Simulated scan of single mutants.
Amino acid sequence: MAKLYFRYGAMNSGKSTALLQAAYNYEERGQHVLLAKPAIDTKEADHISSRLGVTRSVDFLIPPVADLRALFAHHRGELVRRENEALVPEADGRRTDVACLLIDEAQFLTPEQVDDLLRIVVLDGVPVLAYGIRTDFRTQAFPGSRRLLELAHSLEELKTICRCGRKAIFNARLVGGRFVFSGDQVAIDELSTERVTYESMCAECYLRESGGRIDGR
């Protein structure tokens, strides 16, 4: 049975690397995948890039108000059509179809779009691997991540470490090199007047930098 997987972790925990590796594993076995990410993530335009230097373009971007199931159905149909028109059919005679949908930066999906992911899995029979971060720089859950935690068949935490060597669970925001603990939930580098960066931190280091503040208070 197809399942909805949510693989989450703090910044720099290797989420994009894991996604690209999963896509490679499917394709190495002759299976077809579709890669997508929310259009709000403008950092790499229509590409997914890992810290190891591997880059790949997505098959489609997901606008904030898009019907994700309908969008997937369209690109699934296009993939099947292209493969059926190819000169060389599937070597083993299998019917061409999408073996998996992979979503990067899934925290930026709306709750309704996460509901669509579950429908794709259950009603359309296609597994979905969604990768994203759980909470923002104020320690609040992203709406898309919260819904994935509620609906996913399988949850897997991808781990990284803080500057002190402890396990990192929070994502601190820096603007112009200074930590900030209030502001809009989403701030993409290219959309900012000052350079916005993020640092993965353990709870102890986060509280030390914030002066004990949590959730912007």
Score class of each variant (00 low, 15 high):
Val54Phe: 12
Ala39Met: 08
Gln21Tyr: 13
Gly183Phe: 12
Leu20Val: 03
Gly53Asn: 10
Leu19Cys: 01
Thr110Met: 05
Leu123Asp: 12
Gly30Lys: 00
Ala2Val: 10
Arg119Tyr: 05
Thr135Asp: 08
Tyr206Asn: 01
Val186Thr: 13
Leu129Ser: 02
Leu87His: 10
His32Cys: 08
Pro127Gln: 05
Ser50Gly: 15
Glu78Tyr: 12
Glu83Pro: 08
Val114Gly: 02
Ala22Ser: 08
Ala168Arg: 03
Val54Gly: 07
Gly93Phe: 07
Cys202Tyr: 06
Gly212Leu: 00
Ile103Ala: 06
Leu148Gln: 01
Gly183Gln: 11
Asp116Ser: 06
Glu27Trp: 07
Ala22Leu: 10
Asp104His: 05
His153Lys: 04
Phe181Val: 01
Ile169Gln: 07
Ala91Met: 11
Thr110Lys: 01
Lys167Leu: 10
Tyr24Met: 09
Val33Pro: 05
Thr17Trp: 11
Glu112His: 03
Arg29Glu: 13
Glu105Asp: 14
Ala86Lys: 15
Gly183Ala: 12
Arg7Ala: 09
Glu204Ile: 00
Ala45Ser: 14
Glu112Ser: 06
Asp215Ser: 13
Tyr8Thr: 06
Glu44Asp: 13
Val114Ile: 05
Leu101Ala: 08
Ala187Asp: 14
Lys3His: 04
Asp97Gly: 14
Ser210Gly: 02
Thr193Asp: 12
Ala130Asp: 00
Arg208Gln: 09
Glu194Lys: 15
Gly212Met: 04
Val65Phe: 10
Arg213Asn: 00
